[in-house]
Amino acid sequence: MINFNYVQASTQKNVTDTLMKDGTAQIIAGGTNLVDLMKRGVAAPQKLIDINNLSLKNIEQQKGFVRIGALALNSVVAENELVVQKFPLLSKALQSGASQQLRNMATVGGNMMQRTRCSYFYDTTMPCNKRNPGTGCGALKGYNRMHAIFGATENCIAVHPSDMCVALAALNASVIISSSRSERKIAFTDFHKLAGTNPEKDNTLQRGEMITAVEIPDANNFAQHSTYLKIRDRSSYAFALISVAAALDMNGGKINNARLAMGGVAHKPWRLTTAENFLKGKAATEENFKQAAALAMKDAKAYRHNNFKLTLAPNSIAEALKIAAAM
């Protein structure tokens, strides 16, 4: 690992000022992804700003939403009483990601900031527009079994690896972002971006900004009928081939409202709004779930090795809806 300068931040302003001043500085919280990237030579920050002394760990009820601090640990959020009771979907998504050792280190903000696990991004001898803009995409004509089926361009077909983020996208969460001058709040689905022409940028965070919290609106009836279905190569401790966050607001056998998001299919958590709109007011039947899944797949495009996702994805959507409805 290339050496770096290490500083501990005592205030939020400290962090955002340093980020603004020094373009080579990076925040470290849990470090589970960043330290690995530094060992592999994929990331080489000249300065690490340790933010663990900031008071950003709280999980608290506020009027109309639950606020989760950016430094709350994944393992703590997963078992937090408020979260388990109001957003079992989020709890389940967190439990299905990584291992308990990693969840004990990883933070909510860090989970959002983690990079893709595309093997071409990790292998510094390979071309990768995300790691080294302008070098091309190794995965496009390479081994692309894990890769995107939605919203990809020939610049980059990598997927975002998070489970937590898929649940937060489905739950209409917001992200609180702070700079030295101001604070802004954006929809969770606007935080991550598609690869577009600049895949080196994973999200819409600007220089000098940091994530301080996530807010999840709690005025909904999704808790009773929600699930996170994760399909992977082994039954635990692996990234998703396909994952589905499904939440239903049910009235008897009728669906008042539906929320659907997928992981393992795009450069960002992929909300399925067409399918959601279709399900609104419909009966919770397998036939309707299959139709919703088919609608969700309309713009899907496979590459050489991930054609199976075109079948696995709609089947997973229908299955997740079935599980959520039956609860």
Binding site: D50, Q101, M105
Partner: peptide
């Protein structure tokens, strides 16, 4: 008291 991975933990932290 919490289990973590020491290979991904910076000692300075």
């Amino acid at each position: 008291g919490q289990r973590v991975l020491s290979c991904l933990s910076l000692a300075i932290m």
